[in-house]
Amino acid sequence: MKYFTTLIIICLSGSAYADKTDSGNDLFQACNAGKEDCDIPIQAAYDTLEYNEYICPPSDMNNEKVKKIVMKNLREKPKERSKPSFDLMVSWFTKSWPCK
């Protein structure tokens, strides 16, 4: 049941901003321009995964550090930017902070 609930939350979180930041390119541009469309989707993905214990980041993690990680990945992996930004963040976060 927890998996199903998490999946629903992830889908809803992702669709809440899908029209503004569909792809990694959209998110990259929004962040470089300093728009609110940058912070909201990053925090939505991070908070959803952390709350449902799909990721276990270090206790000193904060919004700015998470954003830096996302931007680093977007800069270093331009070929991936055409993928949905939410999918990219889920992949990066779960690889970076797996729960043991």
Rank of each mutant, 00 (worst) to 15 (best):
L7G: 11
I9E: 14
I10G: 09
C11R: 14
G14L: 08
G14T: 10
G14M: 15
A16C: 08
Y17V: 13
A18L: 13
A18S: 11
A18Y: 11
A18V: 09
D19S: 11
K20F: 05
F28V: 01
Q29F: 05
Q29H: 11
C31K: 04
G34H: 10
E36V: 13
D37A: 13
D39Q: 14
L49P: 01
E53H: 14
E53M: 14
E53Q: 15
Y54N: 11
Y54A: 02
P57L: 09
P58L: 07
S59E: 12
S59R: 12
D60W: 05
M61P: 02
M61A: 05
N62G: 06
N63W: 07
N63V: 07
E64D: 13
E64H: 08
K67Q: 09
K67R: 15
K68T: 00
I69H: 02
V70W: 00
M71Y: 06
M71F: 01
N73D: 05
R75F: 03
R75Y: 05
R75I: 02
K79C: 01
E80R: 02
R81Q: 05
R81A: 04
S82F: 01
P84V: 02
S85K: 00
F86M: 12
F86W: 08
F86R: 02
F86Y: 12
D87I: 06
D87R: 03
